[in-house]
Design a protein around this nucleic acid. Structure first.
Length: 214
DNA sequence: AGGCCGATATTCT
DNA sequence: GAATATCGGCCTT
């Protein structure tokens, strides 16, 4: 086994991200997901593609801000399961949040996808974010800004919980891509415990990153 | 530019 | 009963 935090799994550019990539320490996976393309089938042969610009790492039994902190529950058990799967949960009973499971099976960890920039399918996203029966008029950069908005714009909900993003036939997939911008770290958003650790990773200066921008 | 609030599922006290 | 990995609207500086 490689030592914690030192191993490298190089992603073939433009190719699907494989399970080995996710079966590593969450804290190593999180920043390397920046720049990757998140792909969601939209029905009728259409798809939405979005470039990930902001993520947060949520660790396991030693991270008080993680759903896995108190061990597996009905909701959080998936965080202890196989890597490369989607963990979608309902936040405040209203908004969905999407995560990618990391670490080998048996060890908990997940990366929360906080924000992305729409590359393909902007009109589909605008309709998903409709307000008052009309397509959303928010600026393009804000369509998938924030974890709740991201799930709404991509059409992700509890029915997508557990999807294998490493499967070529899955409704939700990922394509690896190198990102050239600088990665900036910051403290995680909206938590009350473990506030001191810098486990939020953003592409510096990207307009699709949520506020407050580091 | 920032504070308070309501909506409300899951989990914890 | 209270807290929470949120968001948009409405209010006050």
């Amino acid at each position: 086994m490689p030592r914690f935090g030192t191993e490298r799994v190089r992603q073939p550019l433009g190719a699907p991200i494989n399970r080995e990539f996710f079966a590593r320490p969450t804290i190593a996976v999180a920043p390397e997901l920046l720049g990757s393309l998140f792909i969601v089938d939209a029905g009728g042969g259409d798809e939405v593609r979005a470039r990930i610009v902001e993520v947060e790492a949520y660790l396991g039994l030693d991270d008080p801000a993680s759903h896995a902190y108190r061990g597996p529950t009905k909701r959080s058990a998936i965080m202890f399961g196989a890597p490369g799967h989607l963990y979608v949960y309902l936040s405040y009973g209203v908004h969905h949040c999407a995560n990618l499971i990391c670490e080998p099976a048996g060890t908990a960890g997940a990366v929360l996808i906080r924000s992305a920039a729409v590359e393909v399918g902007e009109d589909i996203v605008r309709w998903r974010r409709e307000e008052g029966g009309r397509r959303s008029a928010v600026p393009s950069d804000a369509l998938l800004r924030g974890p709740g908005n991201l799930c709404r714009g991509l059409g992700l909900s509890l029915t997508d919980n557990g999807l294998d993003v490493c499967s070529a036939t899955s409704r939700v997939r990922l394509i690896g891509a190198r990102q050239d911008g600088a990665v900036v770290t910051a403290r995680r958003i909206g938590i009350s415990r473990a506030q001191e650790v810098a486990l939020r990773f953003c592409i510096r200066g990207d307009a699709a990153v949520s506020l407050p921008r580091p």
